[in-house]
């Protein structure tokens, strides 16, 4: 029943609290790229890979009362904070499915990173078919406003290698 919703609930269960919609988007995208079974369709948008399907599914889970969404005003922007409710936990328990241990470790690791860094990592993964030099050029084109340094880009490549140990 509602398998994609259940998978997302498992992701929230594994991650604990997730701060920021952008972070959530990138965490699920990266996990999907690592072959974890998420089926949300992603497209490239100005801020990197983005899934409208994921946005709507999370909204559904909030409306069902399975997730909480807290809106916080930051200087110049609004940030959202997500967590699982008791009803959500009961729903997940009723499904009798366990979270894959690797997925749990992977999501917890991703959740410790900044959304800026995950935006870079997900962009690198989005263009993974390109040669490294062309990929770096592409990052500078599509992410010109973020002004990622060579050091950050190298760190993203290393981090992806680290993430592959989870998949």
């Amino acid at each position: 029943m509602m398998k994609d919703h259940v998978r997302l609930m498992q992701a929230f269960f594994a991650s604990g609290e997730i701060i920021g919609r952008k972070k959530l988007q990138k965490m699920i995208y990266i996990a999907k790229k690592l072959s974890f079974p998420f089926h949300e369709k992603y497209q490239f948008h100005f801020f990197g890979p983005y899934s409208e399907e994921l946005t709507l599914r999370v909204e559904e889970l909030c409306n069902m009362g399975f997730l909480t969404e807290q809106k916080e005003k930051k200087s110049g922007y609004i940030q959202y904070r997500y967590g699982m409710t008791e009803e959500g936990q009961a729903f997940l328990d009723a499904q009798q499915v366990s979270v894959m241990r690797n997925l749990e470790s992977c999501l917890c690791d991703l959740n410790t990173q900044s959304s800026r860094f995950l935006e870079l990592v997900s962009t690198v993964l989005y263009f993974e078919g390109l040669e490294r030099e062309a990929l770096v050029d592409k990052i500078h084109i599509v992410k010109s406003k973020q002004k990622y340094t060579a050091e950050e880009i190298n760190e993203a490549f290393s981090y992806i290698e680290h993430l592959k140990t989870f998949s």
Partner: peptide, 22 residues
């Protein structure tokens, strides 16, 4: 079969808070 609105390929206007869509 449960069919949810998120199963459909259409979207509403979003103000794009927190750097979603422009």
């Amino acid at each position: 079969v449960v069919d949810s609105s998120s199963d459909l390929p259409y979207d509403f206007y979003r103000p794009g808070e927190e750097e979603e869509r422009v």
